[in-house]
Design a protein around this nucleic acid. Structure first.
Lengths: 113, 113
DNA sequence: ACGCCGTGCATCACTATACGAGGTAGCATA
DNA sequence: TATGCTACCTCGTATAGTGATGCACGGCGT
């Protein structure tokens, strides 16, 4: 299960981030780890895409965030899903399945009606 | 089955183009129509992305192309899959399923591995 | 003591690629 | 005449991922 070409990833970051946050409160670095684990190593979001995505989701009101001092190491910013974030997640999931279905139909060739 | 956000599309154009060309020889405009039909209207590749993609695939040797005069209307450029294009298609298909599977696992949360 | 590595957040330049608008052109129809 | 569909191409713009860099903390090896 190798790494995936970065172009395919475009647009999936919010979906992945919101998904792992269903587990509960997580901080940024941890979110990246979860995504890496859950995807079986296929996805390893770079910091340059993860942090901007988190900031955007927070600005949209999909995530709420608080700083906490780490007992060891530097401070962390913990993120949690808001209600509207849950709704956004559902939207992204629906959009994703519609997309994946359309690709399957187009590639498979079973005439989309 | 509404239209899909353009970011998700990134990187899928070669896969879609190569896929519809399995049917046989097609010209550019027709390729776009096939993709639109097969996807059930979800995908409607713009000319600004389709033609550059065709040129790139041709330059790579995945497609061979010839001009033909249309009996009616302007001339058309017909594309057909080469052997290496068939191999490239298989590659893109494999990469796509790996990608889709990874998304499903990450979103679904059934622990990767 | 010093450098290196892992954690943790952030930003930057670079890059790939989709979109829409614009251009050229032929033919058909109103 | 002009509008619209076919058919090709190219350009400017926007989006968003990557890797590099920077700051900062703490632990480990030499």
């Amino acid at each position: 299960m190798g790494r995936i070409g970065s172009q395919l990833l475009k647009g999936t970051t919010p979906l992945l981030v919101l998904s792992v946050l269903r587990d509960g409160e997580l901080y940024g670095y941890e979110i990246a780890q979860r995504i890496r684990e859950r995807s079986g190593g296929s996805f390893a979001p770079s910091e340059g895409s993860l942090y901007p995505a988190l900031h955007a989701l927070e600005a949209e009101g999909a995530l709420s965030a608080t700083w906490r001092e780490g007992d060891k190491g530097p401070r962390r910013r913990y993120y949690r899903l808001t209600n509207s974030g849950g709704a956004l997640l559902a939207e992204h999931e629906a959009q994703w399945s519609s997309f994946a279905l359309s690709v399957a139909r187009t590639v498979g060739g079973e005439a989309g009606r």
